[in-house]
């Protein structure tokens, strides 16, 4: 009984951790090409989830809503890139930090005004009644989270390795100046990375919403965890974020089980401090030599 309950805790923690990993992956995508990240990524998750909910409410079937929501996320990502990031990058300034935060705050107020402050349920055709596997209760909705996360990350990784556009993406990530000399447009590649990052955020929102409900603050806790995961794993390892995400999720669950739910946030912070003190480039990160 006891071992079973602990396993149950680990399983539900790992599933939550996969969502952290997916959002952290969104950070990585833009960091790879432009060395910038969207600090309003959480609001992107939330607004996309609200938009998807609206699609469902106007009668769009679930399986059409998913790509619709992801497309909307991509558009939002592009808007962030155009309005908040591009100008700052062109001027080699760090202005994107403040700009993306401001865009996030703006999106938050817009969402409050359009959809209100209340949390709302997110209907899904996937069943949320539990099935038992070796005595562990798990719901199909939770399984869909895992499937969705791995499918999207797998597809993006394949795209980066196998297609021409993806190779351009990798080239810009490796060395922006060299890539530009080879005729690859860095600006376009950065746009692509922000678009993809928006897709990832939207899917994270759609996957988690049936479990956590949709509300303006739905992603504010998630985003901090995702940021820890991205920093601990290193900002350039897709495999790393999955491992660290699952680890953090499991640790959180176990901490709240053994020490009480008030300690839930502790492992994330401890991991972050340890990583920054011992491996600032991230556990799976590559140490980069910066020429001055």
């Amino acid at each position: 009984m006891y071992a079973l309950i602990v396993t149950q805790m680990v399983v539900s923690g790992v599933l939550m951790g996969l969502i952290y990993a997916l959002i952290a992956y969104g950070f990585q995508l833009t960091y790879a090409t432009s060395k910038s990240i969207n600090f309003g990524q959480g609001e992107l998750v939330m607004v996309s989830a609200f938009f998807s909910l609206t699609l469902l409410n106007v009668g769009v079937p679930y399986w059409l809503m998913v790509p619709g929501g992801m497309l909307f996320g991509a558009l939002l990502g592009l808007v962030v890139e155009r309005t908040g990031v591009r100008l700052a990058l062109e001027q080699k300034s760090e202005g994107w930090i403040l700009m993306t935060i401001i865009l996030g705050l703006f999106a938050f107020s817009v969402a409050e005004n359009i959809w209100g402050r209340d949390d709302r349920p997110f209907p899904t055709p996937i069943s949320s009644s539990p099935i038992q596997i070796f005595g562990i209760h798990i719901t199909p909705v939770e399984i869909s989270v895992a499937v969705g996360v791995f499918a999207l990350m797998g597809m993006i990784e394949l795209f980066k390795r196998k297609t021409l556009l993806g190779k351009a993406f990798e080239a810009v990530s490796a060395d922006r100046d060299a890539a530009e000399l080879m005729g690859i447009s860095a600006t376009r590649t950065i746009m692509l990375s922000y678009g993809l990052s928006g897709v990832v955020a939207a899917l994270a929102g759609i996957l988690i919403a049936p479990i956590t409900t949709v509300g303006p603050t739905m992603a504010s806790a998630l985003i901090l965890k995702a940021f820890s995961v991205a920093v601990v794993a290193g900002l350039d390892s897709g495999f790393g974020v999955v491992v660290i995400g699952m680890l953090l999720g499991a640790l959180e669950s176990l901490t709240s089980f053994y020490l009480g739910s008030g300690w839930r946030e502790a492992p994330g912070l401890i991991l972050l401090i340890l990583a920054l003190a011992m491996r600032p480039m991230g556990v799976f990160g590559k140490a980069s030599i910066r020429k001055v």
Binding site: M9, S12, S261
Partner: peptide
Amino acid sequence: EKFNIGDKDMTAQLLR
């Protein structure tokens, strides 16, 4: 068992 405003995951409390 305690929970905070905004908490969505009650697994730990429920299992205890």
